Structure formats: C-alpha cells, structure tokens
Amino acid sequence: MARGDHSARGVRALGVLLVTSAILLAGCTGPTAADPPPVTETPEARPIGTSSVPAAVAFAPLRGTRADWAAMQHPALAAKIDDHEEARPQIALNRTDLVFEELVEGGLTRYVAVWHSDIPAEIGPVRSIRPMDPDIVSPLGGIVAYSGGQDQFVAMMQAAPVVNLVFDYDDTGLFTRADDRPGPHDVILDSTEAVGRYAELPPPQVHFAYGGADPLADPAFAAAPTSSISQVFSEERYPSWTWDAASSAWLRSQEGQPDMEASGERVHAVNVVTLRVAIDWRYGEVPKTTLIGDGEAWASVGGRTAHGTWSKDAATSPIVLTADDGGPLPLAPGNTWIELVPVGGSVTFAP
C-alpha cells in the first residue's frame, strides 16, 4: 500500500473516532425528563485587554513545531558563527532552528546558524562571511549578521535579498566584544535588538518537509537503524553525532570530544541532514561550497537514517530533499543541523 493510502486511512480513522466520541458524549450528557433545569451561571469577570478568541495555531516554518501564529510574524536571523577552538563554546546553538556547517580555509569549518522560532538575547561569536553564504541565506530572507570579510564576498552578500548587519560598519551598538573571550573570537550580537529593529520583515518560507516524531518508520524509506554518524570535512574537522534515545536527540562531538555550548548543555539536534557537496576553488585558498545543483543526501531522524538526494535550483530556492522512492524525505519537528560535507571527505553511519 502506498504511503498516501496509509495517511488517508489514518485521517479517516481519526475522523470516525472523533465523531463517534462526540456522539457517545452527547448521549451520556444530554438532558432527560428527570433532570433538573440547567443552572445559568454568571460569566467570570475578564480582565480588560484580554480576548476570548483563541490564539491562531500555526507551525514554525524552520522547525515544523506547533507555534502561535502571531509569535512567528518576524524575520529569521542568520549569523556567521565561529568554530575555531578559541571560539568555543558558542552561544545559543541549541536555540537555533537550522545550522549549516561548511568548510572554510585551512580545513576548518564555520556555521551559518539561523534563529527564528526562539530568539535568544545574544548570539556569537560572530565571524566573517564566505562566498557560499548568500546561497544559504537568500531563501530565508530576513537578516544576516557577520563581522566582515573580503570585499568581494561582502558585496555578494549585500546583493542578496536580506538585511546585512556587519560588525565592521556598525555604529549603533548592536555588536560588542566579550571581555572573557580572545579576539577575534569575541564579537557578540544583541540578537533581540537586531530582530526588533526589523520586525516588519516577513517570516521565512518553509525550508523542509516535516512528518511526525518518527517520520522514517515507513518501510518505503528503507531507513537503517543508526547509533552514530561520523563526518569528515578535513584532517582538522571531523564532527560526529550519537543517537540518545532518552532525549530523542542526536548528541554532537567535535574531533572526538563532546561539543558543548555556553549554557553548559551538550549541542544536540532532532534532525541531522548530511549533504555531499562539491568544492569550487576559484577563490584561491577560500573554498566555496557548491549549492546550486544536486547531490547525495541522508536524513538521520529518530535513530534511523534514510538515503536520498538534495537539489537547489537557484540562490533564492530552498534545498529540497527527495527520498529514493521519489517522494519528499521528511524530517521530525525540531531543530536541524545540515552538514555540508565535501565529496573529498567522508560520511559513515554505524548501526
């Protein structure tokens, strides 16, 4: 039976169950001739300024989680986050909706981290832009924050359809340097103020397809049980993830050590998406991840991993994940890390 048949059957069954329950409840509670007349109660006083209209329920576009519609009506904030050893622990990585890890010069990696459903007070350390970042950020719209970069890369980002907040040019106090961190790994952004200044910008579009808590359980995905994921970007950077059933999350390590954020929590993700990507060396020592195109992909969710492909047809288009059967490759509601692993690196999944 096709997956759509299963879904339709589940929806129909749920509808029958709800209708049946309503009829049974009505039969149990309806008045009879022996019942006393109903008592009319005076409504409780309602504080001025409150409404009896329930809040509109929606879904966070970059997490797939249930959310209040009004609370989602603000832009996404993307920021270039440092991953040098002296930049660790980073601030508020576990409050992101999305994190993209990319190769930069010297075999190191940096992040494009994106916050929308949960905006922390501050984020960082913020570092400089790279040539693939406009392709990552453009589909999100909203705001991008970074410390600077080569003039050509800054020009590329300023041409993207996003508001640029640049430490090198800021004279409004959005950025500060942390006294307890070594430079240049010390630039911190006041993220609530940044989003507040541009609150009129629209929220981001939906980035991925989301299913239930265990979206890869359908045999059609041929998802393999996975206890750990190992990704090699270079000799200097080889992150890994371990499935923790108790917390229903992937726990992150870097170079064999637990990866911690500034809150003291282990960095974790509900979804880990691994994409194999080509590297364009036209900028000399600065590698550019090639994101306009397609390639091999894996989605690791709920202790399983399903294989598929990724594609992106324009800078302003989101990445599309497709399962091997041709349908969407779904994620579970929650935060997602997207690992942009070079084809010269490696990816392994342990059962």
Rank of each mutant, 00 (worst) to 15 (best):
R3K: 08
G10D: 15
R12H: 09
V16G: 10
T20V: 12
S21P: 00
S21E: 02
A22S: 14
A22Y: 00
D35E: 12
V39C: 03
V39K: 11
T42N: 11
A45H: 12
R46Q: 15
R46T: 15
F59K: 09
A60D: 04
P61C: 00
A67T: 00
D68R: 04
D68E: 12
A71I: 03
P75W: 11
A79Q: 02
T96M: 00
D97V: 02
L98E: 04
L98C: 05
E102F: 06
E105C: 10
G107K: 08
R110V: 06
I119P: 13
E122A: 12
V126F: 01
R127Y: 02
S128F: 04
D135F: 13
I136W: 03
V137F: 09
V137H: 09
V137R: 08
V137K: 08
S138R: 04
G142P: 04
I143H: 02
S147E: 11
G148D: 13
V154A: 13
M156T: 08
A159V: 10
P161F: 06
D179G: 08
P184E: 08
H185W: 12
A194Q: 12
A194C: 13
Y198N: 06
L201K: 07
P204Q: 15
D214Y: 14
D214C: 06
P215N: 12
P215R: 03
D218G: 03
A220Y: 01
A220V: 15
F221L: 07
A223K: 02
S228A: 15
E236H: 07
W241K: 00
A246Q: 13
A249Y: 06
R252E: 01
S253K: 06
Q257N: 14
E261G: 00
E261W: 00
S263G: 02
E265R: 11
E265A: 15
R266C: 02
R266H: 06
N271H: 04
L275P: 05
D280W: 09
G284K: 05
V286D: 03
P287T: 14
K288V: 13
I292L: 14
I292T: 12
D294A: 14
W298I: 11
V301T: 14
V301E: 07
T305N: 04
H307T: 08
H307R: 10
G308A: 05
W310L: 11
A314K: 10
V320A: 05
G327V: 06
G334T: 06
L340P: 03
V341N: 05
V341P: 08
